[in-house]
Write a protein that binds this DNA or RNA. Structure first.
Lengths: 213, 213
DNA sequence: GTTGTTACTTACTAACTAGTAAGTAACTCC
DNA sequence: GGAGTTACTTACTAGTTAGTAAGTAACAAC
């Protein structure tokens, strides 16, 4: 029964405080998942970081699985400069009629991920744990992996002759994932966008991709 | 004090039985790490799979960290068709004076890994957990990651003009890692070597890499 | 000013965690 | 046949795990 009529300003204020607390909980959970994995993380550790009791954490998320759901939700609530790029080529967009370029798309993705190392690490950790059929995220990440290779089926990419656009995206994203794993493991040693630009010379070598980058 | 003089056949037999038991323990541990990660796996679960008590497991490995050491050891005791390939180009090898080719090297790596999905998954899992500085394997995997990009510094790869061999290997291995993650997550859906051959067309496109593949 | 809701806390449970200590049965060595 | 070693087991400890139940203090609604 949803009795949520016009919420009073006071109710809004309280709910905002609650939202802030939930954010603290999710932030702590992300840090702990990155450090130990979801299986290795405990509700008590989350509670300690936030400064409340373990039962207090459960008050917000219900169960450990509920916490995982909130963490995933946070991952998806990121802003995506990417969808913005692709939508430019859709009917009504600024570049309607033109075709997007894979290297350009990749560069945007790299730039975006470069500003969110914590979420990149979270993705690597959960995605890896989800390899196991035992993981509650197994099907979820498998579906995602299938879908991401063809992010926008109605877009026709501008690629050189003899190059399969779908394969090029698939391969580029695999390389990106591999590089991201190295980067988040030693962020001080690796300049992610700089390394990517070197990868670009391999993935999209210049005589062939001239005009398509 | 090492009192290991000529071991009697009986001692050998006993030690062989012990080795077999240790193998069972390590095999169970690999399965459980793949399913839940090292942090999520317990000595009791290993013991249950082997059919002995948890204290029995500790008799062999001393501690949970000791079990991790044994698991890592198993990973490195794999045969490597790869080193064999590279050694052919060393002084005294059959191909002395010639240069190895990166795509060929990659194909061997893919073929070898394709026959060991369990160890590939183990690598993905431990490597990911080792992203965290908290992991006992953090430095270990970082060193490995640095080294693997230049597997044999004294080999001069045969590559097309304008291509940086080190970057090509680095990029190819990143893509391989990314593809392997997809493969072990859904082995029934993905034909790893077949997918790799499509990646080859992107990483080493034919007009450019003609004669270097 | 009562009634309800929110945001927690304390107190608890039952199961599980890695690790230790002290056995014991089987076998080997000499 | 006695001494030592191996491959375990039983029994235990101290700490941690997710989750439940029953509060309670602060505030809001009316």
């Amino acid at each position: 029964m949803d009795t949520q009529k016009t919420p009073t300003p006071a109710a809004k204020k309280r709910s905002a405080a609650a939202q802030e607390r939930l954010d603290q909980i999710v932030s702590a959970a992300v840090r702990l998942i990155n450090a130990r994995g979801f299986n290795g993380m405990s509700l008590q550790a989350v509670a300690d970081e936030v400064g409340i009791t373990q039962a207090g954490v459960l008050h917000y998320v219900g169960s450990k699985h509920g916490l995982l759901v909130e963490v995933i939700r946070r991952y998806y609530d990121r802003s995506s400069a990417l969808d913005d790029y692709l939508s430019l080529f859709h009917p009504g967009g600024a570049f309607e009629g033109q075709s997007p370029k894979i290297p350009e798309y990749c560069r945007l993705l790299v730039a975006e991920n470069n500003s969110q190392p914590e979420l990149v690490m979270l993705f690597q950790m959960l995605n890896t744990e989800a390899m196991s059929t035992e993981s509650p995220l197994h099907e979820y990440f498998n579906d995602r992996s299938r879908g991401v290779i063809e992010p926008e089926p109605d877009v026709n990419w501008s690629v050189p002759e003899g190059i399969d656009a779908t394969e090029a995206i698939s391969c580029a994203l695999a390389a990106m994932y591999g590089l991201e794993g190295r980067w988040v493991a030693r962020p001080d040693e690796i300049d992610y966008p700089a390394e990517w630009s070197k990868f670009e010379d391999i993935l999209f070598p210049l005589p062939l991709w001239e005009g398509y980058r």
